[in-house]
Design a protein around this nucleic acid. Structure first.
Lengths: 110, 110
DNA sequence: ATTGTTGTTCGCAAAATTACGAACATTTAT
DNA sequence: ATAAATGTTCGTAATTTTGCGAACAACAAT
């Protein structure tokens, strides 16, 4: 009776989701998804928290691969990481479609 | 200089994402999204963790609104909460499309 | 050199998350 | 009435997350 483990896809999707699992980070993603200009200061101005905390949230999003940052002295420019953004979109989409697809009449808890 | 706060949409999406932010819970959602039969025991068998912990994860997914459970003595049946599932899908989709849409050439960090 | 601007890093505290075994509750079967 | 099967709840421990101010680093301008 060997217990199953998680697939790398499940780990990866969970990683994306976890990074998105905070209002501040959703707000940051919303902001970056809509803007072309995206310096740290602009982001900070949009948020009700200390800059140290903003920096922390940005680091998490960056570590998860959803955004990227480039230094443009004395500022730092952030943006969506397109490549991973698309991967995340596909993965979320696939999960949600998975349920949509199958027959709703036989689904449990009806 | 009044600092903005978060919109209810941002809070809600973050809530969904947070619930999805763990491999175990992604595995549960994968399982439920594909099956018609979905008793607690079936879910537990799919996972490498203690039943108390499985129960805890299920509670989180339920509290976030992504799944629902009904008692069918002596078993408990779980399934995707269709209504919120669709809401979550739209919200994730909207966020991801938001970036996809706008002109990639002017996006920062290119 | 000194000052100003922009962000990151450090150190810390409070709160939340994750995980487990043991105990408990509920219903079914004997 | 007892015992078996199925999950939840409780209590606890270890870890992670969240948030802040202060200190620091890097560069620009005077």
């Amino acid at each position: 009776m060997t217990k199953p483990t998680y697939t790398s896809d499940q780990e990866r999707l969970a990683r994306f989701a976890k990074a998105m699992g905070h209002p501040t980070r959703i707000a940051i993603l919303n902001f970056l998804a809509q803007r072309n200009e995206c310096y740290f200061g602009d982001i900070h101005d949009e948020l009700p928290i200390a800059k140290a905390t903003v920096s922390q949230h940005l680091t998490e999003l960056k570590d998860a691969g959803l955004i990227q940052g480039t230094i443009q002295p004395p500022k730092v420019k952030y943006c969506i990481n397109r490549e991973n953004w698309n991967i995340a979109r596909s993965m979320f989409s696939a999960l949600f479609e998975d349920c949509k697809d199958h027959n709703s009449n036989t689904c449990c808890c009806k």
